[in-house]
Design a protein around this nucleic acid. Structure first.
Length: 278
DNA sequence: ACGCCCGCCTGTAAGC
DNA sequence: TGCTTACAGGCGGGCG
């Protein structure tokens, strides 16, 4: 669920809420959340006493810069949430990490399905020990390309459009929801071979990538019916109201009134308009 | 290189 | 009502 717009929304809030704060203590009970460490103790030891000097985003990863020189990396997976709370607030189920600041207040990580993770590493190791981050493709919001450069990369690939959009090594940050929304905005089917696009289609696709993501960030991301995504304050995002195809199967297309179709593609649910997307 | 599927997890909801 | 099954989609990995 958390894709680029949701992670960017949280990053902006973290920028306000935790940058400049010093970590007083850390409670880390989640072994699976901290699976890259030998033990939660090791994770805690690297954090206590450190000050957070900045928060960046790379695709769906959050990277906290520490004044020790280390980096705290967080991926929310499917069900991870970061929440700003007070020490007196009740601790929700599935809370795996609690960071308490010297200035008061806590940052908590909860994650029912434990696909998410947190770990501390060094800038050097990001390029070696952490291939997932080192191999990430460009970030279309943070470091956009020209559409011509995008087209040169795209035309070389022998794969279908949706698989390519979701490939984090090609472009970082898209998941199932935004891939479908972007393909609708571009008027392209999920199963079009990437190397079959005309120059005009490439330009339209890239414009749709950038515009859809910016729009979604403006509305603070998509909270679906399951409420799986909320921001740092527990607030839902408003972008789902603006979805054109995602979870709208059987409903009339907002552009042409044809019913939106739901299919399985690469064992993922895919929504599209059979009239508007070619 | 690509398509396809599994495993990792839990909460929710549909189906019998 | 209560049990079982399917689904949700993040990612790595394995296989053809």
């Amino acid at each position: 669920m958390p894709e680029l717009p949701e992670v960017e929304t949280i990053r902006r809030e973290l920028d306000r809420e935790v940058v400049g704060k010093r970590i007083k203590s850390v409670e880390a009970s989640g072994e699976r959340t901290l699976r890259r460490h030998k033990s939660p103790k090791e994770f805690v030891a690297k954090l206590e006493g450190a000050k957070i000097s900045g928060v960046e985003r790379r695709g769906k990863y959050l990277v906290f810069k520490l004044d020790t020189g280390d980096l705290l990396v967080c991926h929310l997976g499917m069900s991870g949430q970061l929440r700003k709370e007070q020490a007196k607030d009740p601790v929700a189920d599935h809370t795996h990490v609690v960071i308490t600041f010297t200035q008061g207040g806590q940052l908590r990580f909860l994650d029912p399905r434990t696909f998410g993770e947190m770990f501390v590493t060094t800038p050097d190791e990001l390029g070696e020990a952490v291939p997932e981050l080192a191999d990430l493709g460009f970030d279309p919001v943070e470091t956009p390309l020209s559409w011509t450069a995008f087209g040169e990369m795209l035309i070389k690939r022998q794969t279908k459009l949706k698989a390519l959009l979701m490939d984090q090594k090609f472009m970082a940050g898209l998941g199932n929801i935004y891939s479908d929304e972007i393909l609708f905005a571009a008027g392209l089917r999920y199963d079009r071979p990437a190397n079959s696009l005309s120059t005009q289609e490439i330009r339209r696709l890239y414009r749709s990538v950038v515009e859809t993501l910016h729009d979604a960030v403006k509305y603070r991301g998509s909270t679906l019916a399951d409420q799986g995504y909320v921001d740092l304050y527990g607030k839902t995002g408003d972008y789902a109201e603006h979805h054109k195809v995602y979870a709208r199967d059987g409903l009339a297309c907002r552009r042409c009134r044809t019913p939106i179709q739901k299919v399985r593609f690469n064992s993922r649910t895919t929504y599209y308009c059979p009239q508007c997307q070619v």
